[in-house]
């Protein structure tokens, strides 16, 4: 009977939980740097997706994700275990994305008006047929502060609490921003109502 129980325990899949992240971080702080790689493997896809959703540019994903994990590596020793590791990780990710968007904004000051027009030309394109593409481009037209909470909720499935911690604001603000994002999206997509039906 005892043997059977042991077997059952051994056969159980390893389920990741919050403690897993914390224990890995503790081991890292104690000097076992190999645990950092486990954290990377565990969270890389989520981080990469957030970046992709935020910037809508898959070419930048790995570069910015790398920056995110380098920042985590450098600061992990100061992690205070007061919030989930993922919340902290997503906050860093969102901040990196914001930094990048800020840089792009500064650069865009020096780019020609023609280029800018070309960038936003899709919004009036009557031949746009692909629903997903239409919606994606509509989301891109939303301001960053509305777009990010919407995507974190609808795509990544984060809770309002997690989103609030990630973007460092109140839950009420998150709630409001997500609603406004949906409203904005509905208005943008009005001309394509037939295609979207």
């Amino acid at each position: 009977m005892k043997n059977k129980k042991k077997k059952t325990e051994l056969q159980l899949p390893q389920i990741l939980n919050l403690d897993d992240d914390f224990s890995l971080i503790k081991r890292f702080i104690e000097g076992d740097e190999s645990t950092f790689n486990l954290l990377v493997v565990r969270h890389k896809e989520k981080v990469r997706n957030i970046i992709y959703l935020t910037l809508n540019n898959h070419e930048l994903v790995d570069d910015i994700a790398q920056e995110v994990f380098l920042t985590v590596y450098k600061n992990l020793g100061r992690f205070r275990f007061e919030s989930q590791f993922t919340t902290w990780l997503y906050r860093i990710t969102i901040n990196k994305c914001k930094d990048h968007l800020r840089k792009i904004k500064i650069r865009s000051i020096f780019t020609s008006i023609k280029d800018e027009e070309e960038d936003f030309g899709y919004s009036t394109s009557p031949d746009e047929k692909d629903v997903a593409e239409i919606v994606r481009k509509a989301i891109d037209q939303l301001p960053e502060k509305l777009k990010i909470p919407l995507l974190l909720k609808d795509i990544e499935g984060l809770s309002y609490q997690e989103i609030a911690e990630s973007i460092q604001c109140e839950i009420g603000t998150v709630k409001s921003r997500i609603f406004r994002a949906r409203e904005g999206l509905r208005n943008i997509l009005k001309p394509y109502e037939k295609e979207l039906m």
Partner: peptide, 27 residues
């Protein structure tokens, strides 16, 4: 309806199997 559209509009970024190796090298 909008939530449904949003949820279906975005596909996940393709997985990068070498990303952790790249991060290790960068570290």
């Amino acid at each position: 309806r909008v939530k449904k559209l949003t949820s279906k509009s975005v596909k996940s970024v393709p997985e990068n199997h070498y990303f952790d190796t790249r991060v290790s090298a960068a570290i």
